[in-house]
Design a protein around this nucleic acid. Structure first.
Length: 879
RNA sequence: GGGCGGUUAGCUCAGUUGGUUAGAGCGCCACGUUGACAUCGUGGAGGCCAUUGGUUCGAGUCCAUUACCGCCCA
């Protein structure tokens, strides 16, 4: 017999089970044609990532579904893995290199540097997967994949080459963030904004064939060298007469058009804007809309190039000075004023970011996305919550081409080679044979270009010819469920749907769950810089992993954010303690009663409380199946929380206590019934709190060694157990108990007195059931004297509930009444009853209501009125 | 600027197709501990369901308006 420890020690117990689960390989999956499969691919965390509270939520959600389906008899396969995270990883290693050796990546060269990153990855990468192990995720570790591993890289090349050959991939221009100190392109994430005091210059652009001039305001006069238009807002009446006119661009001395574009802010400066498409993101778009030429005036190291006339070779500041000098000397500069604005700078080098027009590779998205729109419209792929479908359609209908090249070294280098002499392009999955005559495109692919293939690449996808024999792919694809953050619906989810349809000819997953964003108690996003993100590993040690898992899911409603405060973890911890102690109580009594040699057979009949808990348990199964199928995870935990704590512990176990001290047949039946329900509770809870349920399940029965609760059948719904009468009767019973407790609370020091309890039913239903209920009453109101309970129809002053009035008759001396006036509450209740009755009477007096409302609604109102009046009358006599 | 949400108890949120006196958890107040659990039990207080208008016999629920808050995209 295993001793039930008085305290649950999560840290050591979790570690024990984690090791056993992994050693036994119980979450390994393989093709099993006997069973239906349930497959899930993990959203691959960054190889540089550290576990944060959002990961806890997302991975617990997936684990709940995997564990639930596994217990429900599915062959579950949950594939783990990591993302090579181009930018983040490269930056990380660059920083280490600088810190440790004082070198830059250029000192090593591309090949050496990439090798260094691989070394770093082997040593330090993937900490997050170790942390996920601690979370208890039931993934198949033997299937771990990496977006840059051999198989996935092959898939990336295969897809790139195929798209290129089909004409979806093309080279185009795009403005990128250029850091001219480190000479690299930066992503938006690597940029910060600082406030800078500058000058705003007002420059005159003479209008052609006119004595007038248009005045524009700019902080960057040197970029005039690349101006190809001046823009005004079409709604701006000051300039409407200029339609079709041109201006003369000073310095360069050429004619450029005036264009009308609503992008222009009428209130800024003069309301006229110079347009430099090659050196400003917004100007680039204006240029595209109006077919303007984009003239690049800079070299990669931040000097004016050959398009910059006499300023060629000058730095940005120098050329600005010289251009200004020219403008001033020739009367173009009208005024200058102080101006403070935000300037983008490189987070690493501090260089002012230069928007720079460059050649990039794009995927043409319009045609590719059409089938992906269709499958969501048809409900083949479902989003939860559904509101994201609207966002999805809106984005897909206006889809922009995808820029897939990145100026990095870490990643899948683009499989394009240029012929050194002819410039001819070669695009294949393998390099050209005469490699010495070719140069590969230096850029790598966007990290998402590997993750968009994830749902099939992890199962060994190669190409359609070989896939027919790929058993894993045939069995597991399409996957069933994806849980991810709504921020990446376009970056990732939409693109996976597109690639799945293009390359597997099928959707990648059926249900997508967009989980909540976890925020702090004040509603701010968790972030490193705010320092408001609690370390989940610390919380797991303090409160237990299960407590954290339970809490985060409990707090995360479908479709809105979670406000998570560290202290909230007490919700989960307290619940687990409650569950633990209930188990301990039951086991102690179970062992005692079952070992009693005087034991007899159990009574076969169920009493009203047993029928009630059976019915309630069945309700709970029905609820949680509904909630899990509806992806309402917090409601799944909430209904279990309420059932375990309120129904099972507060009422059922309390009632069971009365029976445990009775004769053998009664006590045996009572403890067996309670234990049976309790074991089923453990199964229902296992998906969300796997460790503690596994532990208790083993403590309850030592013969379970070597088995696991995670492969035990999930309790099934049995509608024959639903018992409306017992549920109603139990509500009446609760009213009787609560009313008695209220009566009890009126007296001070009542424990020292003996009394009889007199009960008066307030309506027919109560009167009919009172005999069945009074037996269980005594224990629950702690009536120590063991005195008789009698019911009466006579009039008396006492406490009234919905169904009963209760009064104590003291044997001999009576305790003092607290607060003297016991009649206050009754008066108050009578008042509110009166308001209620008047309300119904008014309703029933309304002709329109009687004519138009449904018959059963009217009947209900009549019944309500009758009950209320009856109760009013009985209570009023009690005064 | 475009799109999508939200506004119900002190806090965080439920409230299914309109139909009991609008619920829960936490917090608060009172009482309670030789009993599985103080990481607890029992009881209680606390709400003009953001605004204005409409549809309806009947609106927290449906429609519109305003205000405020938030998210995504540009």
């Amino acid at each position: 017999m295993i001793e039930f420890p008085s305290k649950y020690e999560p840290v050591s117990i979790e570690e024990k089970w984690r090791q056993i689960w992994e050693a036994d390989g119980i979450y390994k999956s393989s093709v099993n044609s006997e069973k239906k499969k349930y497959s899930v691919v993990i959203p691959p965390p960054n190889v540089t990532g550290m576990l944060h509270i959002g990961h806890i939520l997302n991975n617990t959600i997936q684990d709940i579904y995997c564990r639930w389906k596994r217990m429900a008899g599915y062959e579950v396969c949950w594939v783990p893995g990591m993302d090579h995270a181009g930018i983040a990883t490269q930056i990380k290693v660059e920083q280490e290199l600088k810190k440790n050796e004082g070198k830059s990546k250029y000192d090593l060269g591309r090949e050496e540097f990439v090798k260094l990153i691989w070394d770093w990855k082997e040593k330090y990468g993937g900490i997050i997967l170790k942390q996920l192990r601690k979370l208890g995720v039931s993934v198949d570790w033997s299937r771990e994949r990496f977006t840059l591993d051999k198989g996935l890289s092959r898939a990336v090349r295969e897809v790139f080459v195929d798209l290129y050959k089909k004409g979806y991939i093309y080279k185009g221009k795009r403005i990128i963030n250029w850091d001219n100190i480190t000479q690299t392109a930066l992503s938006d994430d690597e940029i910060s904004y600082i406030e800078k005091r500058d000058k705003l210059y007002y420059v005159k652009y003479p209008i052609v064939d006119s004595n007038d001039a248009l005045v524009i305001a700019t902080t960057r006069p040197e970029t005039m060298l690349g101006d190809t238009a001046v823009a005004v807002n079409p709604a701006d009446k000051r300039y409407s007469h200029l339609a079709g006119k041109k201006v003369i661009l000073p310095v360069v001395n050429k004619e450029i058009p005036i264009v009308f574009d609503s992008y222009v802010d009428m209130s800024f400066g003069t309301g006229a804007l110079k347009i430099t498409p090659a050196h400003d993101m917004n100007d680039f778009e204006v240029g595209q809309r109006h077919n303007l030429e984009a003239i690049n005036i800079l070299t990669k190291d931040g000097k004016i190039n050959e398009n910059g006339l006499q300023y060629k070779g000058q730095g940005i500041n120098e050329s600005r000075k010289n251009v200004l000098k020219y403008l001033k000397a020739n009367g173009y500069l009208i005024k200058e004023e102080d101006y403070t604005h935000n300037v983008a700078v490189s987070e690493r080098s501090g260089a002012v970011i230069e928007p720079f027009l460059s050649d990039q590779w794009f995927v043409s998205m319009k045609k590719l996305s059409e089938p992906a729109i269709q499958v969501v419209k048809e409900g083949k792929v479902r989003f939860h919550p559904d509101k994201w479908t609207k966002t999805y359609f809106h984005w897909m209908d206006n889809v922009k081409d995808w820029c897939i090249s990145r100026q990095l070294w870490w990643g899948h280098q683009i499989p394009i080679w240029y012929h050194n002499e002819t410039g001819e392009i070669y695009c294949e999955t393998t390099p050209p044979k005469d490699i010495e005559n070719w140069t590969q495109d230096p850029d790598v692919l966007d990290t998402w270009f590997s993750s968009w293939l994830w749902p099939f690449s992890v199962f060994g996808w190669e190409n359609s010819a070989k896939d027919k024999e790929n058993k894993d792919l045939n069995y597991y694809y399409p996957t069933d469920f994806l849980s991810t953050a709504p921020e990446i619906i376009f970056l990732w989810v939409a693109r996976m749907i597109i690639s799945g349809l293009e390359y597997m000819n099928d959707i990648p997953f059926k249900d997508v769950y967009f989980h909540s964003t976890v925020r702090d108690g004040k509603g701010r996003k968790m972030s490193k810089s705010l320092g408001n993100s609690p370390d989940p590993l610390v919380l797991m040690d303090q409160y237990g992993t299960d407590a954290l898992r339970f809490t985060i899911v409990y707090l995360a409603p479908l479709g809105s954010d979670v406000l998570f405060d560290e202290k909230n973890t007490e919700i989960g911890r307290n619940f687990i303690t409650k569950l633990w102690n209930a188990g301990r109580f039951l086991k102690m009594n179970y062992d005692r009663i079952m070992n009693d040699s005087a034991s007899g057979d159990e009574e076969p009949e169920y009493d009203f409380a047993e029928k009630w808990i059976d019915s309630r348990f069945n309700d709970t199964i029905r609820d949680i199946e509904f909630y899990l199928n509806a992806y309402r995870l917090n409601d799944y935990t909430k209904s279990l929380y309420a059932f375990v704590w309120s129904d099972f512990c507060d009422w059922y176990i309390e009632l069971t206590k009365v029976k445990l001290s009775k004769n053998a047949s009664t006590s045996r039946k009572a403890i067996k019934r309670a234990m049976d329900i309790y074991e089923n509770i453990l199964k229902l809870l296992h998906p969300v709190i796997p460790y503690v349920t596994e532990e208790i399940w083993h403590i309850l029965d030592e013969s379970r060694e070597g088995k696991t609760i995670s492969k035990i059948e999930f309790p099934a719904l049995d509608e024959t157990k639903y018992d409306e009468n017992s549920e109603k009767l139990f509500e009446i019973f609760k009213d009787l108990v609560t009313t008695s407790r209220n009566e009890r609370a009126k007296y001070a020091g009542i424990n020292d007195y003996e009394f009889d309890i007199r009960i008066k039913p307030l309506n027919t239903t109560a009167a009919e059931s009172v005999n069945e209920l009074t037996d269980s009453l005594q224990m629950l109101i702690n009536n120590k004297g063991g005195t008789a309970i009698e019911h009466t129809t006579g009039e008396f002053a006492g406490t009234s509930g919905d169904y009963f009035a209760v009064k104590f008759d003291f044997k001999g001396a009576a305790p003092k009444l607290k607060n003297g006036d016991a009649g206050v509450k009754t008066t108050k209740e009578l008042e509110s009853l009166k308001v209620y009755i008047t309300g119904i009477e008014k309703k029933l007096g309304n002709k329109n209501f009687l004519e138009k409302a449904a018959a059963d609604v009217i009947e209900k109102e009549r019944q309500k009125l009758k009950d209320a009046k009856e109760k009013y009358e009985k209570i009023s006599k009690m005064k």
